[in-house]
Amino acid sequence: MRHIISILIENEAGALSRVAGLFSARGYNIESLTVAPTEDASLSRMTLVTRGNDEIIEQITKQLNKLVDVVKLIDLADAPHIERELMLVKIKTNAETREEVKRMVDIFRGKIIDVTPASYVVEMTGQPSKLDAFIHGFEEDSIIEVVRSGPTGISRGEKGLHL
């Protein structure tokens, strides 16, 4: 099962390597990992997507909690939550294809943020599956470059992940 684990961690040098090192040392897989400081500069928030059966996920959360730098964590998959990922895509265009590409971007509620005679850069956020669907709507050779942030997430409702 796919799990999305949200972690509050001390904003210390090396904290990221402790998390990454834990996953490689214990053979857990990381599909994606995003990190940035929070509104409290002493804390970072990490969102980590991983896969495993219940036993593995239980060990992953226990091992993460055991890291001295980890302040708190939740498995977002345990409850209703929202997931978003940012994607930037550079797409080949020419006079003939421009309109069609623009229409696709509109359907997916993306934005064209750079234009040259031969290309568009499209910005899009959404569920990872929506971003996949957008990419799959194009011929492979019309995509020049894809950059994805990896998902971040937040739980629904009034409760938050705080100290």
Binding site: E55, E58, Q59, K62, Q63, N65, K66
Partner: peptide, 11 residues
């Protein structure tokens, strides 16, 4: 005392 020792190898 260490939760990660519990149910690690044996349920």
């Amino acid at each position: 005392v260490d939760p990660s020792s519990i149910s690690k190898t044996v349920r």
